[in-house]
Write a protein that binds this DNA or RNA. Sequence first.
DNA 1: TTTATAAAAGATATTTTTATCTTTTATCGA
DNA 2: TCGATAAAAGATAAAAATATCTTTTATAAA
Lengths: 146, 146
Amino acid sequence: MFSKTCEYAIRAVLYIAQMSKNGEKVSIKSISKGIDSPEHFIAKILQELSKKGLVQSLKGPTGGFYLSEHSKKHSLADIVKAIDGEKIFTGCGLGIGQCSEEFPCPIHNDFKVIRKKLFDLLQKTKVNEFNTQLEAKLAFLKKNHT
Amino acid sequence: MFSKTCEYAIRAVLYIAQMSKNGEKVSIKSISKGIDSPEHFIAKILQELSKKGLVQSLKGPTGGFYLSEHSKKHSLADIVKAIDGEKIFTGCGLGIGQCSEEFPCPIHNDFKVIRKKLFDLLQKTKVNEFNTQLEAKLAFLKKNHT
DNA sequence: TTTATAAAAGATATTTTTATCTTTTATCGA
DNA sequence: TCGATAAAAGATAAAAATATCTTTTATAAA
Ligand code: FES
Ligand code: FES
């Protein structure tokens, strides 16, 4: 569905949202452990998200990643777009050049409904809305939640 | 959503279904043109689908690809499983080890609904059900339908 | 001001996906 | 039986995704 990079990205942002909710900053090491991803790889991904303004960061001691008030309101769709692009939301399910009503692929009519539902879900979901669930361990960001 | 390989695979099978509906056989060259895919690449993919019994083939002059009565009843989900595996139907949307009710990721509850809808759509759709639409040019398998 | 820290940036490596090319095998028709 | 045809099989190549390592820069605290 999403690229691995994108999966890591979403999990990282949700992790940062939870861990920084009272103004703390979160290190790459902590994120890497918290979402079970390769440390250097998630660093690269966060660099990209930082450039695009989806997360904030500060260098140096006591530095780390956090979310501005604005960034807390970003949606999961924003992250997917930043990493994987728009294809999943607007592209043809069978990969013909362009999705269009005029020259539809065979599954166009059914597929566009599902694609829309996926977009709506990701669009309405904001990155800071899972903080309490994560805190209460009612939701998880990695397999080994021990 | 699907890999490029999988997109080609589905389009190829739909093309074969249409072109071979009266017992004709379809060459790789024809398929490659009909769905606008690299000739050698679609050959490899069809080899795989043939091994797995999703399409039939015959070598030699007048040879080519076709669908047995049984193969005509296969679903798009069967093709997706054969090429991309089950991940898209059963895997976690955020890529944590396993999707489970017990240790769900934050989007689990919403995501599983969409994943299910996608599966149901692909499962109920059989490869031979677009023959007349394709014939009538009401649906297309490539961008340049000229 | 110096030192330690942590992210940014840049370079490199590995793996997987996508694509191409060549040789072999099966089958048909002459 | 022979030659042409078309897919199967195997080898190789190119591109993209994933991952790692090293150096640089910014920042804070001592
Ligand atoms: S044309 Fe294929 S999904 Fe719209
Ligand atoms: S655990 Fe993530 S989708 Fe079920």
